[in-house]
Design a protein around this nucleic acid. Sequence first.
DNA 1: TCATTAAAGTTAT
DNA 2: ATAACTTTAATGA
Length: 198
Amino acid sequence: MNIDEQILKSSGGKVKDYNAGDFIFTEGSLPNYYYQIIEGEVKLNNLTEDGKESIQNIAAKGQSIGEFLLFINKKYPANAVAISPCKILRISKIKFLKMLEDNADLKANMIKNLADSLFSKFVMRQIISIKNPATKLKVLMDYLKSSQSETAAFSFQIPLTRQQMASLTGLRVETTIRTLKIMEKENIVKIKNRKIFY
DNA sequence: TCATTAAAGTTAT
DNA sequence: ATAACTTTAATGA
């Protein structure tokens, strides 16, 4: 979801700064705000007891985080953590819901946005259940590239670290690295000084 | 086959 | 400088 900054501000939204590593919200807490990223990147993650990280999603500038929870009465199922220093515009749940009631276009947009989140969820779910690591990574990259207008081979630079790709797919980082090298040999990806092109 | 562990090199802050 | 990320290699399930 992306709502015009001015509209959010005039409805009572305020910008908050976060450092890399700061939590925007934590698993188990109650959703009280709509959050929209003005600057920086945020990951939605869960930590397993043995300390391993599982990433649900990575959101960048212009995207909102966990907004679907504002429509139901449930606790956050994941943490939101700033990956880089962030500026995030937040507005209270009450004011946000009122905004939607007052603006039919916004409400229609919200439905599209929720459908989009469902689609993304669906894809990520598939990626987790795929066994073959190369297929996992390929489906992940296909999904990332699908939001780009340029479709030519190797025109898209994967905006993720290998670590993040591993945490998104459920692979270990070593397996991710090895598999990407095999995929390079098979001409599925190109790697130029550690950058991955697909 | 992939996860795990360890160790070392590289990049980012 | 220090932490985070990348890479290679050995070992085990």
